[in-house]
């Protein structure tokens, strides 16, 4: 994908963050332009999920340094709901179950809060219903899901598809997918990846966090970053993901340790 001269959607510089006093992010830097798909890979505990939650504004994480600029705005000064309304979307690794709140109501209230933020009129239940029927196709979901409580009793695959459905409705500027492939069988993985590909366009950006190269067979990244010990230790093209698949992370980690020792 040609991205020379495209608008910068996200710019992260020397970001540090901690949870309960334990530093997790130790100098993250990253830039993503419109139309790009970036992947972040890395071993367990490298800080991938923390990075996604910090971007979305999870209250348990405290930012201790650095900056995050999202479409020219200081993201770190914004409340989580403002970030969401401005177009930051996080597909959760473990989507939460919300008993008693129907999926349809949840989607409508979320959608309308984004519309309101954009200065648009809120959609009533009828118009929203039309919109959602279209979007259901993106993830091949049955409309019966809409009347059920949010994620309650959903299988792992259904929960992930529901995340992509929300993403399809909210049309984010920056979509962060946190291990969306975890726990998916190959069919569900294809549906999810296909949904993501349909939603990617030259105006938005995607950040795909994953453990395995498998997902990247379906969602082709422009850049692949490897995270370890709270920061990016190396970046490359999609071939880097294949190399990691073949060789594991150890050779990179050893190089990293050697570097730190010097």
């Amino acid at each position: 994908m040609m991205t020379e001269g495209s608008e910068v959607i996200l710019s992260v510089r020397d970001l540090t963050a901690e949870v309960d006093g334990t530093p997790i992010l130790k100098g993250m830097s990253l830039e993503i332009k419109a139309g790009e798909i970036h992947a972040i890979m890395g071993p367990n505990g490298s800080g991938k999920s923390t990075f996604s939650k910090v971007l979305a504004g999870h209250p348990a994480y405290e930012v201790t340094g650095g900056e995050v600029i999202f479409q020219g705005q200081n993201l770190l000064e914004m409340e989580p709901e403002e970030r969401a309304r401005s177009g930051v979307f996080l597909a959760f690794q473990y989507p939460l179950e919300i008993p008693g709140v129907s999926n349809l109501d949840f989607l409508r209230v979320a959608y309308n809060s984004r519309r309101k933020h954009q200065g648009l009129e809120e959609l009533d239940a009828f118009d929203f219903d039309e919109l959602i029927q279209e979007k259901l196709d993106v993830v091949k979901m049955d409309s019966a899901f809409l009347s059920r409580s949010v994620n309650e009793g959903f299988s792992g695959g259904e929960k992930k598809r529901n995340e992509i459905l929300q993403m399809a409705i909210l049309e984010p500027k920056l979509a962060i997918l946190d291990e969306t492939d975890s726990g998916l069988d190959i069919d569900a993985l294809k549906i999810v990846a296909n949904g993501v590909n349909q939603l990617a366009n030259p105006e938005n950006a995607m950040l795909v966090i994953t453990h395995y190269q498998r997902l990247l067979n379906y969602i082709i990244p422009d850049r692949v970053h490897v995270m370890a010990n709270g920061r990016i230790i190396t970046s490359g093209t999609k071939e880097l993901a294949l190399e990691l698949e073949a060789r594991g992370y150890d050779w990179l980690l050893e190089a990293e340790t050697a570097e730190v020792a010097v």
């Binding site: 979305a56 504004g57 999870h58 209250p59 348990a60 409340e79 989580p80 709901e81 970030r83 969401a84 309304r85 979307f89 996080l90 959760f92 989507p95 939460l96 919300i98 008993p99 008693g100 709140v101 129907s102 109501d105 949840f106 209230v109 979320a110 809060s113 984004r114 933020h117 409580s149 929300q166 909210l170």
Partner: peptide, 25 residues
Amino acid sequence: EDQLFYFTQRGISQEDAVSMMISGF
């Protein structure tokens, strides 16, 4: 905190989140 974060991450305020969950309950 996590349930509320799920709502706020979708652009729904905490007040609305609590009221939706309580009404449903």
